[in-house]
Design a protein around this nucleic acid. Structure first.
Lengths: 255, 255
DNA sequence: TTGCTCCTCACGTCACGTGAGGTGGC
DNA sequence: TTGCTCCTCACGTCACGTGAGGTGGC
């Protein structure tokens, strides 16, 4: 005696495994169907409908614990729930598309860590007479700023972009940064490609010298650096003390 | 002594929870960083890079057990793996988009169970003089065919579409189906909307009579039904015996 | 008779999450 | 001192999957 389809056929119909159907029975999402004389479950079209409804919601990311309530709710509640589920599905899709974009940056070394604007900035530096070590330090600083003061990132970038326009500012950067690196350990080898060795291990720490250097002319230079162009964009000046404090607390030495 | 950012800051930077980072440490995906004097983990930019690399792959759906191997592989293997990951991500995205489409059909009763073409067919039936019960039986049969002989679905639909053009065929359907339903239990109430009560429970079984009716003129009618138009599209004829056998085995009575 | 499908437990897995109980930092 | 972050276990959870040991159907 048959009368209805078996669990395997129902599973194929709904595009799930047999175990999944039994799991839904176990949790009361789909009622157990009749059994035939051999004890086999036999599914009718109403069971299939319920199964596909459950699967559709589960496949859309709805937790199993909520599906029963949604399917047994009244028409308005049901429709409202569907709209909500569709929205969350859409945002999940958008998120996956964003993840795919990030995935593509993975070949570009630490381009996964910094926004395009920051990478462009670092790329310009060698052409302005800055060495690989200078660029390495700049990268460390940018990463730290993004980690510690994400709201300040845009302002910080604007400040550096602006500063790089001015040769005097570039010279100051060289002097200040090089002074600091000479007192400390040498920075990373500056390799920027290949997944495993894009940055020297824990190089954030390497930018910090063993002993704090003299504060005399370093302080003056820093004054010039941070207040350069302050009259044009006061937002930078307001942001920099916060950024500096954060950088200091994370081990980057600032005179 | 600080030198590096804390686990909470690293988590915020990578867009994950603290627990996730510790989980990655536990499984050797990201090395444990230095500890400060309080035993707190302190992360440098190299740690952040590794963390973001791991997270990017994990977020793209790569099992954690495979991520280490991918990141520590040579450049060609790494690039090849990335291409593969991106492809699977793309197909996951496409699948979610398809699921969203299915979700939209959920309001349409059993439109989730049948393709558009089958639904259109059922919609035409009442206009051709077929009753709600006739339509219900037809729907049952279509669902069964899709479940048991999915390859035969298209041919089966073509056959019915064609048959409905011919008034003599429609009359035959009426006679045959009604005869069968009268001997059996009455079919479902035919409600086609609302999530919970779209079809009468286990109505596949309801289409089967208690006792097999006489085979005399039923057989002749069936002969005409199945071989109608056979000369034009012989594929139908080759498919129907298989379909019939399957339908019979699932409890739909065919003379 | 052989292979396939089905049955019921019981335990495993994947990627974390929760919560207890405690210490360190501003 | 208060609240926040961090620490280490140990166990929980979500949605199934795996596997054992056995029976039924063509």
């Amino acid at each position: 005696m048959k009368n209805g389809i078996t669990i395997g056929q129902a599973a194929a119909f709904a595009g799930v495994t047999i175990k999944t159907i039994r799991h839904y029975h176990l949790h009361g999402l789909v009622d157990e169907p009749r059994r035939d004389s051999s004890g086999y479950r036999r599914y009718g079209s109403a069971d299939l409908l319920r199964l596909v409804q459950v699967r559709t919601l589960a496949g859309a990311g709805v937790p199993l614990a909520e599906i029963g309530g949604i399917l047994d709710a009244g028409p308005e509640k049901f429709a409202a729930a569907l709209v909500e589920v569709e929205q969350s599905l859409t945002s999940r899709i958008d998120e996956l598309i964003a993840r795919r974009e990030t995935l593509r940056r993975l070949t570009g070394g630490d381009r996964v860590l910094l926004p395009d604007r920051a990478c462009a900035l670092l790329d310009r530096m060698p052409g302005l007479g800055l060495t690989t070590d200078d660029v390495t330090i700049a990268r460390e600083a940018l990463i730290l700023v993004k980690a510690l003061v994400p709201e300040g990132m845009d302002d910080y970038l604007t400040q550096i972009e602006h500063g790089l326009e001015d040769p005097r500012y570039v010279s100051l950067i060289k002097l200040t940064w090089r002074r600091r690196t000479r007192t400390g350990r040498p920075p990373g080898r500056g390799s920027r490609h290949g997944p495993g060795r894009a940055l020297h291990r824990r190089s954030l720490a390497a930018a910090r010298p063993e002993r704090t250097p003299g504060r005399d002319d370093g302080a003056i230079r820093h004054e010039m650096l941070t207040h350069h162009g302050e009259d044009r964009k006061p937002a930078w000046a307001r942001m920099t003390p916060l950024i500096e404090a954060k950088l200091r607390s994370a081990g980057i030495d600032i005179p």
